[in-house]
Design a protein around this nucleic acid. Structure first.
Lengths: 213, 213
DNA sequence: ATTGAAGCGGAACGAAGCATTCCGTTCCGA
DNA sequence: TCGGAACGGAATGCTTCGTTCCGCTTCAAT
């Protein structure tokens, strides 16, 4: 085995390695558009057969879990990068922008509940929450008085609801309404009703079969 | 036929008339929670058999259409009531509050596309849009410069995305974030990217089978 | 050249889920 | 007493999907 794997663009294992990322990217696209999409749709989008997919993942749930975990890691990454920014509000803003841009929210929250989470995932979720809360707290002095960290979750949720057929336009529009939301987060009169508690939002992570819209 | 229908709370036709509203209310609840819910779920929620439902509607699509049309009429009604308010911003605010409170948005936009609309529905949709735009225009002087009527659609969309298992709490939280959104609609610096056009938002009314999450 | 197996495509299979129909029953109203 | 409106719910037939299986291709080591 002189070469190990000789040709960089050819060879069986090269193709296989490329399929790894292709399938994952296809899965992200497909499940972002429809979280209930069939597995076959992912394979079709990736331009591979179903076997290529089942060779890599034990089943649909396994793929979903991987996708969700990847999103969670992106979330954490964005938080850590943004935390380096000196200005408190700028750091918070950079973080939220990064999360919205990457469309991470749909991958985590919307897919959560469709599989039983790993312990590692749960730990990462806690870590992600801690990082996000820290960023929020830094920026809080510049927000209206009633703002709480749980509001961040809902802001992201609302941004994820902005969706048109064209993905590029979707991103553009999300920027628009994120700006509005952040402006609303900073100024205004007293907000009606009690703020959301963490408990009220954590139901998303519980296993469920029902498809809320 | 002395009595016509004697006992007000009993009698076959009385029960039937009551089922009319019961089924419609059940359908609203069920399809609000999951627009892809099976017809049987509606019957179960209403506490009736499936026949009782199929006696009233030609099929699932028929029921969906009816539900959507009802929502559209509620939307129009809210707009007309709000239009009577003298203060321009107060009128707009009352309208949006009313629509969010009634959770009309999910009934119209989210259900649109799951059936072929009636001509009457299309006409009502145009009428609804005109009324909403008028309300918007009246309040526009108090908004940030770039605001356009299409923004209203997205604001409602974002409010509809606020959802927790408890319906009462959902309404409460929507009030909270609607307040934030309206504050953001009024003040702030320049918004990024072009505003949405009507054409970009009208795709929702086109027949489709895909379930965008 | 041979060959063993990794990778793979896609048909086939079996389990669900669901809209709709059908039939037997109940009970109002004359 | 009786016709039939209204109904409950099982039965039907179809579609959708996750998963498995079989045979083919391709690569690398011999």
């Amino acid at each position: 085995m002189l070469s190990g794997m000789a040709n960089p663009t050819s060879g069986r294992s090269r193709q296989a390695a490329r399929n790894d990322v292709t399938i994952l990217a296809a899965a992200k696209e497909v499940f972002l558009a429809d979280k209930r999409a069939p597995v076959a749709a992912v394979a079709e989008r990736a331009g591979v057969g179903i076997s290529a997919l089942y060779r890599r993942y034990a089943g649909k749930e396994d793929l979903l879990r991987r996708l969700c975990h990847d999103g969670l890691l992106t979330f954490i990454d964005q938080a850590e990068r943004a935390a380096a920014t000196a200005d408190d509000w700028a750091a918070f803003e950079a973080f939220v922008h990064g999360v919205v841009e990457a469309d991470v929210h749909s991958l985590t929250v919307h897919l959560a509940g469709t599989f039983t989470p790993t312990e590692e995932m749960s730990a990462d979720a806690v870590r992600a929450d801690a990082l996000a809360t820290a960023l929020f707290e830094r920026a809080r002095p510049q927000m209206r008085a009633e703002a709480v960290p749980a509001d961040l979750t809902m802001l992201l949720e609302m941004c994820a609801a902005v969706r048109v057929p064209d993905p590029v336009r979707t991103t553009s529009l999300r920027r628009r309404y994120l700006a509005m939301l952040l402006d609303g987060l900073r100024a205004g009169m007293a907000l009606p009703g009690p703020a959301p508690s963490w408990a009220e939002l954590s139901w998303r992570w519980l296993p469920r079969q029902d498809p809320p819209v």
